[in-house]
């Protein structure tokens, strides 16, 4: 029983991290029809630069803020110079974002060396409580809390703000949004920046969670985020949140009981969804 509970909490925490990555991916795809293969690279950049700032300043919070700022800044640059010129060309778009993933991963190796970097938690987060045989690790709860906060924040943004209104309308009919006098390109930029900021935040939170980071986490977690977005339904925020939890918890149990097939199970899950319900569990067809 304790094991089950621990694994579940563990899985929810991992799910929260994946959600931070998947939320941006699904938002960007839903609105802009851009599948950003480089999205995972933002995760890795967030982790590396966040940790670097954290070790330089000694403050974990500044590290988190720094990661978000770097992510947002990169998002702005990428959208403006790389994504925008290939908006309408799907083929170029897929290729360019994949190339971007490659280059950004290599850049990390140039800046920080090819070896993995180990990360320590600040002491105030590095605690755990033992309650009736269940170990509650403070940092995991912290990650879960941030995941929930971001989810609620996104829901608020989508449902209650003008930006959210435009985003929801833009998903349905971009031409009409523009014909009503809205500069949708500006909204694309905001959404892209938001997505990149969340990805970088996810990476930064991941770093002390896993204890070590390496350049390939961008690719690994990028694929996980894709899986989540496909399962949840492209463009569906709630779907992504649920799928992230599913993949997170499933992954935690799988790595515990049958570690050799953990990754394969996720892939098969995505495969099944794409085969039988291509729009995803909560997506519209």
């Amino acid at each position: 029983m304790e094991v089950l509970l621990n694994l579940t909490i563990n899985g929810i925490a991992t799910g929260s991290l994946i959600f931070l990555l998947a939320a941006g991916l699904t938002l960007i795809f839903g609105l802009m029809h851009v599948l950003n293969f480089a999205h995972g690279a933002l995760f890795a950049w967030g982790a590396y630069f966040g940790v670097w700032i954290y070790t330089q300043t000694g403050s974990f919070v500044i590290g988190i803020v720094g990661a978000i700022v770097i992510g947002a800044l990169l998002g702005w640059l990428l959208e403006r110079w790389i994504i925008q010129p290939v908006y309408t060309n799907t083929m170029s778009q897929i290729q360019v974002t994949m190339g971007l993933l490659l280059v950004m991963n290599e850049c990390i190796k140039v800046f920080f060396g090819p070896n993995q970097v180990s990360v320590q938690l600040p002491s105030y987060l590095d605690e755990s409580w033992l309650i009736g045989g269940v170990i509650l690790i403070k940092y995991r709860l912290f990650v879960i809390a941030i995941g929930i906060l971001v989810f609620l924040g996104l829901q608020y943004m989508l449902k209650r703000t003008r930006l959210g209104l435009i985003v929801r309308a833009g998903v349905m009919n971009k031409e009409m949004v523009q014909a009503l006098g809205v500069n949708i390109k500006k909204v694309f930029l905001y959404v892209f920046i938001l997505g990149c900021g969340m990805a970088a935040l996810g990476g930064m939170l991941f770093a002390p969670y896993s204890g070590v980071i390496h350049a390939e986490i961008g690719m690994d977690y990028g694929i996980l985020a894709f899986i989540v977005v496909v399962i949840g339904g492209m463009g569906s925020m709630v779907g992504s949140a649920l799928a992230a939890l599913l993949v997170g918890v499933l992954g935690a149990f799988m790595t515990f009981y049958v570690p050799s097939v953990a990754l394969a199970v996720n892939m098969l899950l995505m495969f099944g969804v794409l085969m039988f319900r291509p729009a995803g569990l909560l997506g519209r067809g």
Partner: peptide
């Protein structure tokens, strides 16, 4: 599948 999904799925299958 549409091009996005095909690209992604082949990436995943090669990963398998």
């Amino acid at each position: 599948l549409k091009s996005h999904f095909y690209a992604m799925l082949t990436l995943a299958i090669a990963g398998l």
